[in-house]
Design a protein around this nucleic acid. Structure first.
Length: 757
DNA sequence: CCATCACCACTTTTT
DNA sequence: GTGGTGATGG
């Protein structure tokens, strides 16, 4: 380990770097590429590099452009650099490509006829807009599926191909119509002063390409361009790096081709593999010493990735000899897998492992449910990352649409969304009339409704009242925003004015209650944000929301196990990792069977999962799994069989307790699983007893907690009470509890967090 | 106009 | 098992 010989800074002296890492940090000639294998300290190098540039090279923070993969990574990196240099780094351009581009585009908005407060459309908004465009062009949604169109447009945008350059080209019917849709879609976005995710990148590229002044000024301004996770950049991001770097090529990128897992959304591994040719004179550094995983895990990882053909040669090694072997397990079905994995997690916790250091990783979000159920049943705390995020819920999106409209009244996707929310008698018919009227007047929906300079289109009588109500609401909200009211005030005012919650309050369903709770949580989040960002307004809040991923909001909790997809786990590390659902069809995904390049990406995904583990790793598979509502036979992943047996221990728990005399390998024959529509099998046997107590098949803890009428219970929040009613059973059991404070509550048994007395 | 019900396709992965 | 869409009737 070497410290900084010529450093004047005691803080920089404190960074421990190996010789290669140090060389990469200090080198300062031309373009630089760091091949950083998993766990080789790439974040450390990147942070040290930025600190070095600021402190030793005297580059002002605002002249550094650093793109990370998540906003969270950016925040953490900034904090670390700040603590290294002891300087606040206010102006540093650090963030995801998307947020950095948004920042650039807002600064330069006037140059391309946009307002700096343009909206950012997320996937949901994009889809609404495409659907609308398809309808306007009188296309059939079945032959021209909006989703397909959207992904095709996304491909064009990733390659920075504008619709006007496509018009001349001839192609299939689909392609020709695609160009029409693409053209109309972009026009509508411009009209609404909106950018979608892809536009943030593409429009930045167009701007820098088109406007020499802008390009020159940014090239002169940024003295360094740094990119993390370079293997996952797409063509637009590559162009950006190239355009921003300019002739000086002060570019420093870090990545690992073996961890490239986003080709499906346009990332090109070629960016990293051909970096040296594209940036002549590149200095390459290779980090191959892994500081994260035990030798056993690393050997397993190396073996798992070996079959890939498309990769730069490298071999990770570690000085940490030994370590617990990797465990590969095979279960009867998905339920048994989740139960057993949760038991194994629980066992680890009782051995003293902290829940925060444990992760269960899966290929698809749908797999999380079983694990959530199993953990809840065991009263184990967990954090689920990803899936349906808070800000994607309908009620939240409704509220946000109002807020977005306040910032950008031209946003018709938001306008149409809230037109009849809550229901105010403005249905499809009224909407069409208003949209047509707005189009004719050259205005947006909100502008038309709020402007009084022009008679509104004749509406059905029923709509008039609702329309003037909406107008009042919007006018009041616009007024508030003009007076710089806090985001929290605007939102709560909107709720009062529209009576959004009264519909739910009238309903007595769990769902309505959850909605109300979510909206309250949003208000809460707004209040906190306002407090933490007193100088920033609604527009900034909305931008932060729309560019933040679920992972960005994730925080490790000391006592909660982490549940997430393999994609989400990139860049993270955990002492104990469980990779579940290691089956052909899941990992690798069935949809990628046909293409060897895609299989290789799936294999890299597996590799990413493996290399998250520091101390223990278990990879599990199930012989049968519920998918699409039926029980399907599964076989263990080809990725597992590619790893030599000697590198792991294998435990087969897939045998049937009901057929103890059967030969073991018959026990998991497929005939059992082919009956379609089969209901989920009886409670799975505890895995440690699977073969030992054939006579006691089902005393497993499916329902260890029993409830009965009149029973006394104690709830964490509501205190003590008595069960006065019960209905349903299993996961659907509901109960009414009369608490000692006099309140009466309906609860789902499976969620109810209390002790029986 | 809106609530309800039947039917359908769908599950990769996300800034 | 989900969630979105389309037909129907109040």
């Amino acid at each position: 380990m070497i410290s900084w010989p010529q450093s004047r800074s005691p803080l920089l002296d404190s960074v421990v770097l190996n010789p290669v890492q140090k060389e990469a940090v200090v080198y300062d000639e031309g373009p630089q590429l760091v091949f950083a294998g998993a766990g080789t300290g790439k974040t450390r190098v990147l942070t040290a590099k930025i600190a070095f540039l600021i402190q030793e090279k005297g580059i002002p923070p605002h002249q550094i452009f650093a793109a990370t993969f998540t906003n969270k990574a950016a925040r953490e990196m900034q904090l670390r650099v700040e603590s290294l240099t002891g300087l606040p780094l206010k102006g540093l351009w650090i963030g995801t490509f998307h947020s950095l581009c948004a920042r650039l585009l807002r600064r330069e908005a006037s140059r391309f006829g946009f307002s700096p407060s343009f909206s950012i459309f997320d996937a949901d908004d994009q889809l609404s807009q495409v659907k609308k465009t398809v309808r306007e062009l009188n296309l059939d949604e079945r032959t021209m599926p909006p989703k397909t169109l959207l992904s095709a447009m996304s491909r064009y945008k990733n390659a920075c191909i504008q619709p006007q350059t496509l018009v001349e080209k001839q192609g299939s019917y689909f392609e020709q119509e695609l160009v029409r849709v693409y053209t109309a879609y972009q026009e509508s976005l411009t009209r609404q002063q909106a950018m979608d995710f892809d536009d943030l990148l593409a429009q930045s590229v167009y701007l820098l390409r088109r406007d020499e002044d802008v390009r020159r000024s940014y090239q002169a301004h940024f003295r360094y361009v740094l990119v993390d996770e370079y293997q996952d950049t797409n063509l637009a991001q590559f162009y950006l790096v190239k355009l921003l770097a300019g002739a000086g090529n002060r570019v420093f990128v870090v990545g690992d081709d073996d961890q490239s897992i986003y080709a499906w959304r346009g990332a090109q591994v070629e960016n990293i593999l051909s970096f040296e040719t594209v940036f002549p004179g590149t200095k390459v550094f290779k980090l191959e010493e892994n500081y994260r995983s035990t030798e056993a895990i690393l050997a397993f990882a190396n073996a798992a990735i070996t079959p890939n053909v498309v990769r730069a040669a490298k071999t990770l090694w570690t000085g940490r000899k030994g370590g617990a072997g990797v465990l590969v397990t095979r279960y009867r079905d998905d339920r048994m897998e989740s139960e057993s994995v949760c038991d194994a997690v629980k066992a680890a916790l009782s051995r003293g492992v902290k829940a925060r250091d444990v992760a269960v990783l899966f290929r698809t979000n749908a797999q999380s449910r079983l694990f959530e159920d199993s953990m809840r049943k065991r009263r184990m705390a967990y954090v689920l990352v990803g899936g349906m995020s808070f800000y994607e819920r309908r009620e939240i999106k409704d509220c946000l649409a109002y807020l977005r409209l306040c910032v950008n009244p031209k946003d018709d996707v938001s306008g149409e969304r809230i037109l009849n929310v809550p229901p105010r008698g403005l249905g499809d018919k009224s909407r069409d009339l208003l949209v047509a009227g707005a189009r004719e007047a050259g205005q947006s929906l909100a502008e038309l409704i709020c402007g009084n300079d022009r008679p509104l289109p004749a509406l059905l009588a029923r709509g008039q009242k609702g329309l003037s109500e909406l107008r009042e609401v919007l006018l009041l909200l616009f007024e508030l925003v003009k007076d710089n009211a806090s985001p929290h005030t605007v939102c709560s005012e909107m709720l009062t004015l529209t009576g959004y919650l009264t519909v739910f309050e009238g309903e007595d369903s769990e769902e309505a209650e959850a909605r109300i709770e979510n909206v309250n949580e949003l208000l809460n989040a707004l209040a906190i944000w306002t407090e933490e960002n007193p100088s920033r307004g609604l527009a900034e809040f909305l931008e932060e929301i729309s560019l933040a991923s679920d992972l960005d909001r994730w925080e490790r909790k000391d006592d909660a196990v982490n549940l997430m997809t393999l994609h989400c786990a990139k860049g993270l590390e955990f002492k104990s990792v469980f990779i579940v659902g290691c089956e052909d069809g899941i990992l690798p995904s069935r949809q990628n069977f046909d293409d060897e390049a895609k299989i290789e990406e799936e294999r890299r995904l597996f590799y990413v999962g493996i290399t998250r583990a520091m101390e223990t790793l278990e990879c599990s598979s199930a012989d049968q799994r519920f998918r699409f509502g039926n029980l399907l036979p599964m076989i263990p992943s080809r990725f597992l069989s590619a790893v030599p047996d000697a590198l792991y221990s294998f435990i087969d728990k897939s045998g049937y307790i009901a057929q103890p005399r059967e030969e073991r390998h018959h026990a998991h024959s497929l005939d059992f699983g082919t009956r379609q529509g089969h209901r989920r099998a009886e409670p799975a046997p505890h895995h440690e007893q699977a073969f030992s107590h054939a006579a006691a098949p089902d005393d497993f803890s499916q329902e260890t907690v029993q409830y009965r009428m009149g029973q006394q219970v104690a709830h964490k929040i509501y205190g003590r009470g008595k069960i006065v009613n019960l209905s349903g059973f299993g996961d659907d059991m509901r109960m009414t509890v009369l608490f000692n404070d006099g309140s009466r509550r309906k609860l789902m048994a499976k969620f109810a967090d209390f002790e029986t007395l």
